[in-house]
Design a protein around this nucleic acid. Structure first.
Lengths: 230, 230
DNA sequence: CATTCGTCAAGAGCGGTGCTCTCGTTTCTT
DNA sequence: AAGAAACGAGAGCACCGCTCTTGACGAATG
């Protein structure tokens, strides 16, 4: 409350920021497995135990990096999509896809931390879920808008009875559409991230070279499947 | 060549097999990050340095586990698909998809090792590529067969000029089809693995519960997109 | 002003890891 | 039988996450 307390808090916040910055740099170069608290401390001129004043464990440091990553990816796609004409649904979809891919290709290790194999003993705390849905909210919003504008084709097949009610958890991100469209959106979502994971994790190495063009075409195929109008 | 030499070689082969078995069990329970050469040695009653007589490094042990994994997944999908009527293309597609998913759900850590974030010492040797394409050969074969039987719809959009020749690396797995169909197959392939990765890596936790049914519907959507006939 | 009290960096240490090297012993080859 | 190759054991190196204790500093309180 007082100025002195705020001063101490400020230097603490600054140190936390510095730790996460260095950690993020190490993550970018060495990957999540290579992130070492001792190396971070060394780079800061501190002793390793001092880090534990600011992060109770390595997993907690990873958690803040994960949240930051989700926010970065969410902000990238939000910003890119917001610049599109609202009624160009295919354009909004493609722009969002490319924003996502650009970020993923530029930050492969961070992408792997977010969407790759979960780290061994790591359980995502609740704090992450708010940040992790920003991209799917954007993607779902495009499909929702397109459907409600009548600028989208009805899905080729309807979901079976056993999926009754299963769409509830997803619908909040793609509101105002029938179940079939929700599942269509899920399919598009998984196709998008399936490509990104394949590309970032190197599954295309040696087989597909112009990955940006191939990705663009693949996402156009997905848009065409949904009948997204321009 | 002689019997005595074969005897020594045989015990060596047996030890290698035992090491990989224990390692695979540890991989299944603790994940790739938790796989420890020392723990394997401990469980075998050996000292850790003795392991290095059989595997020059931890990465080499992981590599054989990766190859085994690709072969296991390839064999599972090959066997399941081979049991389908040859002219039921949608059935073959769905069967292959479910075989893949069943294996992935049953072996999440192994799946993560194959299709998740690459491990730190991550350069996959050439030995893996022969095993890693068995599943895509099956999937590509279905699409190729369907196309040549006239039991498949032409893709909604054609690939752009810049993708000319880019399909070459993929076409060997889906022979005898035009470029547009190759890219359609790639899209289906990425959609399939995108779903599996999302499910295995826990992205559906809390939102989609009946994942088998949802997966089934999603793969039926993909089949419908390709117009696979039954 | 002096004294408590909380925060902090530092250091030592524990148990774990991958990996290397050496040293006898065993086993195969010649 | 002699030499060569393979082998298991052990010690050791450098690293890791994490814990605990110690001493210094600064802010709030008497």
């Amino acid at each position: 409350m007082t100025a002195s307390r705020t001063a101490r808090e400020r230097v603490r916040a600054e140190l936390i920021r510095e730790i996460t910055d260095i950690a993020r740099r190490q993550l970018a170069t060495d990957g999540a497995g290579g992130l070492s608290l001792r190396a971070v401390a060394r780079e800061m001129g501190m002793v390793s135990s001092a880090i534990y004043r600011y992060f109770p464990s390595r997993d907690d440091l990873l958690t803040t990096l994960i949240i930051d990553g989700y926010n970065a990816i969410g902000e990238a796609v939000e910003r890119a999509e917001a610049a599109c004409p609202r009624d160009d649904f295919a354009g909004r979809w493609l722009t969002a896809c490319h924003a996502l891919r650009d970020w993923a290709v530029a930050h492969p290790h961070e992408y792997a931390l977010l969407y790759g194999s979960p780290v061994p003993g790591y359980h995502a705390p609740q704090d992450t879920i708010a940040a992790r849905v920003r991209d799917v909210t954007v993607l779902g919003g495009i499909i929702s808008d397109a459907w409600r504008a009548g600028a989208m084709r009805a899905p080729a097949i309807e979901p079976p009875a056993e999926l009754e009610g299963e769409a509830a958890g997803v619908r909040e991100h793609v509101p105002g559409v029938p179940d079939g469209v929700v599942w269509q959106a899920v399919a598009a979502w998984t196709a998008l991230y399936g490509w990104l994971s394949f590309e970032v994790f190197g599954q295309f190495n040696g087989t597909i070279e112009d990955r940006r063009a191939a990705f663009d075409h693949s996402m156009r195929l997905t848009a065409a499947t949904m009948g997204l109008a321009q």
